[in-house]
Design a binder for these strands. Structure first.
Lengths: 191, 191
DNA sequence: CGCGACGTTGATTTGCCTCAACGATTGTGG
DNA sequence: CCACAATCGTTGAGGCAAATCAACGTCGCG
């Protein structure tokens, strides 16, 4: 992995050239086409993934067949089923590509070792995780509190770049409404 | 704190008598009456609490004044705003007693020190936290996927002892419905 | 060109909420 | 220990947001 890309991945932290190269040796590039599945519900989760290009979504399908998008991940995001990644349990969600995507994956095992070699890295990932948890928490509370129109507006405001990249039915599935309802909400918002 | 109680608190783990007494020295007993507030939204969170007797709930109030119960805690549970407890941010939720309650509290500072003295304790709490996160995750997914009647049935099945202890309006607030709706759901479930 | 995937629109239904009234239960002061 | 109030739970009527069902426009692509 080249230095420029590594600087991009870890831009927020300040790692030495040597540290970056240690980490870089553990990252493996993965190319996936639109529609390909990165993680299937029930799998054990050995990796977390940095998104360099493209877009993915994590989702669950309930008993009645309805599809619920939990998160999108675009450039510069990390994605995995973190509960399963850390506990070793089977994945509760699936992850698929909704565009052609380039990832760099990092295994749990390498991560443990890197934590020992480069303590700063543990802080880096802990902060990522805390941010993710807080975001998930906010989203959950938002879902409890807000009607669909406001949830949509909040989504557009928070993730403008995602809103432009993904299909309507994925946004609807993220908001927990049907494509028809989303269509009507959008119409209404054009005055 | 007496040995019997300490054995109860840490029953799942196997700590030596000396270790238990080290931990015990950091736990402080707190008695609270029904209605008293343990943690207020916006507070910084210095403690986590073991519930020895009674019942509490964590909750948020949204802009329209609606009350949303996030979790109940009865005997043998630990409760705090863990996101805030770990990050040092202001609490996003409040916690109040819904029965007269006896707690044992542990400060973040003592916890850090105990982790150094008794590494096994870190594992003990990490597992607690992972279980809590997974439960919260499942609940969130359940809320997305299930109608109110099924959410209620799932709640009764998962937490039968809580269902018997708390008021209907707290259960309704946990399920995200009104007391009227809960009343009607219950009626329907009696064939 | 024609087919499939996607988005929109309309008509109808449904689950839950709101508002309002009324029993039941609990608690408290006389 | 009773009386009365407050709290809590139930029931009914009416309304609304979003779902469902169904049909139709549009775009991209073999």
């Amino acid at each position: 992995m080249d230095t420029g890309l590594l600087n991009e991945v870890f831009q927020e932290a300040s790692f030495s050239r040597a540290e970056l190269s240690t980490v870089g040796a553990c990252l493996k590039k993965i190319d996936l086409k639109k529609g390909e599945v990165l993680l299937r519900k029930g799998d054990t989760v050995a990796y977390t993934h940095y998104v360099h290009r493209g877009c993915l979504r994590s989702f669950v399908v309930d008993e009645s067949g309805k599809d619920h998008t939990l998160q999108f991940a675009i450039k510069d995001w990390w994605i995995s089923d973190y509960t399963a990644f850390f506990t070793g349990d089977a994945a509760m969600m699936s992850i698929e590509c909704i565009q052609n995507t380039t990832l760099y994956r990092l295994s749990r095992k390498d991560m443990e070792q890197l934590y020992l070699d480069i303590p700063k890295l543990e802080t880096f990932f802990r902060k990522k995780l805390e941010k993710r948890m807080a975001a998930f928490h906010r989203r959950t509370l938002g879902n409890l509190a807000m009607p669909a129109k406001e949830r949509y507006q909040a989504f557009v405001k928070t993730y403008p770049s995602i809103e432009q990249q993904v299909k309507n039915y994925h946004i609807a599935s993220y908001l927990g409404i049907t494509t028809e309802s989303l269509s009507r909400i959008r119409k209404e918002l054009l005055h």
